[in-house]
Design a protein around this nucleic acid. Sequence first.
DNA 1: TCGCAGGTGGTCG
DNA 2: CGACCACCTGCG
Length: 278
Amino acid sequence: MIFKGIEEFDGDLIFDCGQCFRWHLQGDGSYTGIAGDKVANVKFEKGTLEIKGPCLREGDLKEEAFWRNYFDLDRDYGAIRKALKAKDPIMQKAAQCGKGIRILRQDRWETLVSFIISANNNIGRIKKNIESLARERGRYLGEYMGRKFFTLPSPEVLKKCTEEDLAPCRLGYRSKYLIETAKIVNDDNGRVIEEKLNDYCGVGPKVGHCISLFAFSRFDSFPIDVWVKRIMEELYGLKTKKEMEVFAEKAFGENRGIAQQYLFYYMRYVHGTLGEKP
DNA sequence: TCGCAGGTGGTCG
DNA sequence: CGACCACCTGCG
């Protein structure tokens, strides 16, 4: 499946800026991963996005619509970046470096599960926890490019699990959060409700904002994690989270969620934990 | 060994 | 309310 004429798409940024945890870099620069129950390999080169997958048929309009939506292809990120660059000199640089970032439109339940797991956790372990949960309780889809793929367990499956059942996943105290949350979501017929985000167990302000942004495309959500807090202290001289929230709304406006992604990536670039990138 | 990691929930004052 | 603090786990 081919999408042409895409101006802003950088897999290294999209798949490694903290919004998703199930995509893996391949030797050729492409990414292989899973979204919902769809396994795929994604490669971008010179304005052309190529998506391959074990179950992908050429000309499948439904599939095309799925990936177009998933990668938010109809949004003009160039225009958003341009507008953000005009806000201040710091954001100008951040948005410059962040060219190619897109906010995925991820499955709500999967995003909820992923970010409950992310709380007080590090990326490496978050990824392992999620894969482990999928492997233990999800549905096996098959092997693709040398890797076995499993879906995440549905609310219905997860609500029936005990903490003991989930022990092999090494989720720690997050196990009971997931089980409790699964019960609530299951009672709502499997639907994750945006207005109820903070009622879910294990969802506080930070995780809630991540879900709003990454699953509900609420671009005016501005998740403040320790990294964003650090860089805003460093670059903008702000101290408290409250100050940062107020500032972000005023300074970055309705697209402050994307601004957050640019800042997050920019900090890693500045501090050299990332490879060279113009 | 001990602190820390992309916070949250519970408990005080 | 706002300010603590315990919390599973694995890595450095």
